[in-house]
Design a protein around this nucleic acid. Structure first.
Lengths: 330, 330
DNA sequence: AATTATTATGATATTGATTTCATATCGTGA
DNA sequence: TCACGATATGAAATCAATATCATAATAATT
């Protein structure tokens, strides 16, 4: 059933029906006629047709590297909370860390499918930049910084610095590092730089033999810990770029009777749900993931409203959470 | 820029452009003209306009009770994998366990917004049923059973039964239970029934004093464990309806020097990532969440293709994973 | 060679809504 | 009483695409 059939059924004009759904001038008796007919027929206006004429889809495209990650789903929850409030729905694309899917979904969002885009990318290439430039809708980037766009990001360098410093302050002399791919500027590069700054500031040197790069999984953390500890290397503190990596690494330590924190202190980033129930509760850095989602969504809404060309970068701070894994007295 | 402006720019007819994007008959030289013009202009056809005429949105509505849950995000990952393959995108609605949002998103999906719907509901009311009946697109339900619809669900009763039985077989005589809201048929009621069947089969009785209902969170599990163990009650095995609840409960046991498994065995459901890195690795039941998403999506695709009125229920089986938390010898 | 199939074409109708426009009615202040 | 703004109305134009249709040009089959 379409609007004109429905209008006939209700005994009013097509315009009246449209006005009913769009808060135009409409006499009370017509409203009643329409409401009665709505109950009889269950008619609903077509969103696609509405979108053609009014150019509003009430859809926001959200591009994610994966779905089953605690940090990402917290961001998404924040986004969904704010946008849901304003009557927007999310068109979610899971790129599964696949570069091509990321590109093709940006293409997709150029087809008048969405009113705005929120991008949680990990890597930016030239192709990303050129596609983003072609976008005709507002774009907000969460988790990374890109000049010319509204961004919400975390102080990754600071978070890594503080956590490493916390361990070095307790007397550690041989720091080790398990990080992420440095192409990922935030979680990979910046957290590495924070680690290095703390090490250098403590008058120590960053030894590449004590540094590993892992994937974002527990099993990868386990594997890299094996490489770090199975040689004659003897790190006395270990900074991991994510809690998942840290949890995997600690599993290796446990299986090999390396005591935490007595033999090695361990620190992570992310404040994952499981941190406090690990066999040694894990010290970590809380990053405001949900807040990032909330603020990113608000930024998008305001950019969509003003159409302002001024872009700003909102960097959220962090909080150190100390638990037993770094509870050592010098 | 719209199709007719673009057609003029490319020097071909509007029909030719439409055929180019829809694999109709088209001569090679026109294809080339169009491709050249595409590069020059960056034209993209409007999806909304296309949807009005062709009644295909290439969008699947997915209704979830929350985003930041490991089990749910695994289901979603499975869904996204299969549907992405077929060129569908997900219109995600996070109901945040809010009954009204669930209803309103079903309403939303009646407005020709999506080609199909996947519903991960926990509770079914009459209003749910009547709205589902009004749906003009295919619907698949994941995680619960509802007559008249294609469903993919887990053997929740069996999973709970087997895990409880495992503990009782090791000599436990005083079983305890921390479950979920029984309005949630699958995770609440069925897992409770499985627990009860195992208890009765072992010749024991289900004592309500040893049963608690928790929310789906670690902190709620902690709280309910406190209530269970702080009285003079002395359970020697504890079945929890989810791993999150179990992890919270174990945290309480640890803080109160109640040994696992020596004093109490603990079993959960869900095979969460963190299970094996808990201070006592947790025995659990693996439910095929991702498979549920994959199979649900496939069901939806085939229902959309045939438009068949035959509905089937696919019940996925489970696998017991034994770890230290139940590793006790009688 | 005649007859079908297949490929190819572009004008026009159609989809289901909103927007515009010309016009009518009503209450209120000058 | 007149003029003006606010309220109200429905026909028709518009949005950006696809579907239909009538028709032409090849290719394949008898």
């Amino acid at each position: 059933m379409n609007i004109s059939e429905f209008a006939k059924e209700a005994g009013v004009s097509v315009s009246a029906v449209s006005r009913y759904f769009n808060n135009g001038y409409l006499a009370e008796d017509k409203k009643e006629k329409i409401e009665a007919a709505l109950k009889r027929t269950g008619y609903m206006p077509s969103y696609s047709a509405r979108a053609v004429r009014s150019k509003v889809t009430k859809l926001i495209g959200v591009i994610l590297p994966k779905l089953s990650s605690e940090s990402i789903s917290r961001v998404t929850e924040g986004i969904s909370e704010v946008l849901g409030e304003e009557g927007f729905e999310l068109l979610l694309v899971n790129t599964a860390n696949d570069y091509n899917r990321e590109i093709s979904s940006l293409e997709l969002f150029r087809q008048n499918r969405v009113d705005g885009v929120i991008l949680l990318a990990s890597v930016f290439t030239d192709l990303h930049r050129s596609l983003l430039a072609k976008m005709r809708v507002s774009v907000v980037i969460i988790g990374q910084q890109l000049k010319g766009y509204n961004c919400v990001c975390h102080n990754d360098e600071g978070a890594a610095y503080s956590m490493t410093k916390l361990m070095l302050n307790k007397g550690a002399k041989q720091p080790a590092f398990i990080g992420a791919n440095p192409d990922d500027k935030a979680a990979g590069l910046d957290r590495r730089l924070g680690f290095e700054r703390a090490v250098k500031e403590a008058g120590l040197t960053v030894d590449p033999k004590y540094c590993e790069i892992a994937k974002f999984s527990m099993s990868s953390g386990y594997e890299k810990a094996r490489r770090l500890f199975s040689n004659r290397l003897k790190p006395d503190c270990l900074f991991c770029a994510t809690d998942n990596i840290a949890a995997g690494a600690m599993q290796y330590l446990r299986e090999n009777n390396i005591r935490v924190p007595d033999d090695v202190m361990v620190g992570g980033v992310g404040d994952s749900r499981f941190d406090k129930v690990l066999y040694v509760p894990l010290s970590t850095v809380h990053l405001h993931y949900k807040t990032a989602g909330i603020e990113g969504a608000k930024m998008l809404l305001s950019e969509m409203k003003d159409g302002s060309e001024v872009h700003r970068i909102l960097q959220l701070e962090y909080e150190i959470i100390e638990r037993e894994s770094t509870d050592k007295h010098c």
